[in-house]
Design a protein around this nucleic acid. Sequence first.
DNA 1: CACTAAATTGGAAACGTTTCAATATCGAAT
DNA 2: ATTCGATATTGAAACGTTTCCAATTTAGTG
Lengths: 322, 322
Amino acid sequence: MASIKDVANLAGVAVGTVSRVINNAPAVKPTTRDKVMAAIKQLNYVPDEVARNFKMQKSKMVALMLPSIWNPFFSELAYYIEDELDRSGFKLMLCNSGGKPEKELYYFDMLKQNKVAGIVGITYNDIENIVSTDIPIISIDRHFNKQITCVTSDNFEGGRVALRELVKAGSKKPAFLGSVPLMYSETLRRKDGFVHEAQTLGIPCAVYEEPDSLKDEDQYYSNFLQRHPDIDGVFAITDMTAARYIEKAKEAGIRVPDDVKVIGYDGIQDHPYFHPLLSTIRQPVEEMARTAVRLLLKKVEGESLDREVFRIPVTYRAGETT
Amino acid sequence: MASIKDVANLAGVAVGTVSRVINNAPAVKPTTRDKVMAAIKQLNYVPDEVARNFKMQKSKMVALMLPSIWNPFFSELAYYIEDELDRSGFKLMLCNSGGKPEKELYYFDMLKQNKVAGIVGITYNDIENIVSTDIPIISIDRHFNKQITCVTSDNFEGGRVALRELVKAGSKKPAFLGSVPLMYSETLRRKDGFVHEAQTLGIPCAVYEEPDSLKDEDQYYSNFLQRHPDIDGVFAITDMTAARYIEKAKEAGIRVPDDVKVIGYDGIQDHPYFHPLLSTIRQPVEEMARTAVRLLLKKVEGESLDREVFRIPVTYRAGETT
DNA sequence: CACTAAATTGGAAACGTTTCAATATCGAAT
DNA sequence: ATTCGATATTGAAACGTTTCCAATTTAGTG
C-alpha cells in the first residue's frame, strides 16, 4: 500500500505538501498540486483513515446503541440514522445491548476506548453519569435531565389524539394499556396525554399498567380483560401491545372494532401481511432519526444545543381497528 | 487521558513493560506486573484502541453491507451477526447500500481506507474483482465462483419441500411465483428445486417470473392471476411476494387456502400481527449469521476455507395458508 | 537591481502503541 | 568468587498522518 511518503518521493516534494494537497489546504501552488495529483493517481494512493484518526485523536464513527436491531421500529430508525450519517461522511457502528445494563456499560467502555465521535443511544440504564462528559450523546425516548439531549416523538400529544380518536370512533369507556414504564422514559407521557385529554373532555378513563411482579404475558392480558370487562376502547402504548391485545381479545370472543376500538402507537408496519391494519399514532421515525443525527453532529462540532428535549410531532393513521 | 507512558512513569518501568502487561505477554515478573497493575488502576488507564489499530495496521471492525437494514430479514440477520462478532471481540459497522452498485463501490472504497478486518456482504454488484484480494469477504446468498465464500440456505431443497407440501395440502396445479432473478443469486435455486421435484413426481408445474420490462407491481400480480387462472397452489420466492399475492388474490375473489394454497420463503415474521400466518420455508437465519461470521473470522486469521458455498438446511413451517 | 512582504515549501515533532535488539538481573553450577 | 544461561527489562524505532516553524522561493516595489 502506497503511503504519503511514496507520493512525496515520486512527486519530488515533502510529505507536508502532499498532506496539504489531499486536505486541499490553501497555499499550494497549482503546478505542485498537479504534480502531487499525478503521483497520487499513478501510485493509486488513498489516505489511511486509521492513521488519520490516530493522529487527529478522533474518528468519524458514531455508535448506535439499542436493545435489538431486530425490532422493526429500531431497524427503521437505524436505516435513517445510517443514511443521515453517511451524508455527513460519518460511519455507523451498531451495538445491540439487549437492554441489559451491564452490556450497555460494557459497550460504553468499548466506545470510549475506540474514541467514537458520538453515540445515539436507546438505553435502559441511567447513563447520566457514565460517558456524558467524554462523548457527545443523543438519547432517543429517554430523558435524563442532563446534557444528554433527548429526541422523542410528541408522546403527550399522541396520547391526547388517541383519546380523541377513540371517542370519535364511538368509544364511551376508553382505557390505556401499557406495560411497566421504564425509568426516564418519555413514552410514559403517552398515558399522561391520554388521561389528561379524558379529564378535559370529562370522559371516564381506565389505566392498566403491567405490575412489576407479573411476568406472564398471557396473564397480563387476561387480567386486563377480566378487570375491565366494560371497556370499549383501548389505547395501547405500542403497536406490539395493541396486536397482542387484539389477539387475546379475539380469543375471548371480543370483536375488534365492533366491540372494542383499538389504537396503537408506533406505526412501523408497512407490510402487506399485517392484518388487521392497526389504527395507530405514527411516530415520525425518519425525522426523529435525522434530527438525532444532526443534533449529535452539532455537539461533535462543539456547538451547544439550546434545548434538552426535542419532541417531533406525530400523526394519526386510521386503520381497520377503529 | 492517561497514556501508556504515564503508567510507565508512575510504575517506574519502561513503556514496553507496560505493553507486555496489558497484553499479558510472558516474561514479566509478578512483582512488576503488580506494580504496573496498580498504576493502571490508579490512573484509570485504558489502552487506546485507535492507536493500537494504527500500529497493528488492522482493526477489529467488520462491515455488514446490505441493501437495507429496514428489511426484517436483514435486520434479524444483522442481530445475530453482531452478537456473534461481539463474542469474538469484533465490532460491527453497518452499511446500507440501497442495493445500488455505485453505493456499494463507494462503501467498498471507504472500508478499504478504514482497514476493516472483513466484510459480510449482501450485494447486487459483481464484487468479484473489487476487493477480494485485499479484504476477506463472506457473501450471503450470492455466489461469485471465486474466493468470496458464500453462505446461504439450502434453496434447492427448500424448493423441493415447498412443492411436496403444496401437493400434500391438496394442490394439483402448483406454480412458482417470483420476481426477476439477481445475477449470481443463489435464491433462484428455490425455483429449480421446486420445478425439479414437480418433474420427479410427474406433476404439472407453472413458473411465473417477473419480466424485466414490467415495473408496475399491480400489473405483475394481475398478469399472473389472468395468465394462470387454474392454479391451486403458489410457492412464492419470498414471504413478501406471498403476502402481496394473497392480497391481490383476495381482491380477485380467490380464497386462501380454500381455492389456492400458498407457501412463502423466509419465515421472518414472528409478530402477533401477521395475519394470516403464512406457511413458509423458514430460513435458518441465526445459523446462517453465525456461520458467516465464523467463516469470516477464520479468513481474517488467515485460514483458507475448504468450500466455496455453505448451504444451511431449511425447515418447513406450517401456517394458515395451506 | 536591491529590498520587502507574501506565498510556498521543507523538515521534524507528535499522536500511543508494539516489537525487537540490546542490556541487566538473578540463581545455580563450577 | 566467577561464569553461564535463562529470565526480565530497557530504550528506541516504526506505523502514516497532520501541523507548526523555519527556510526558501516568488512577486512586487522603489
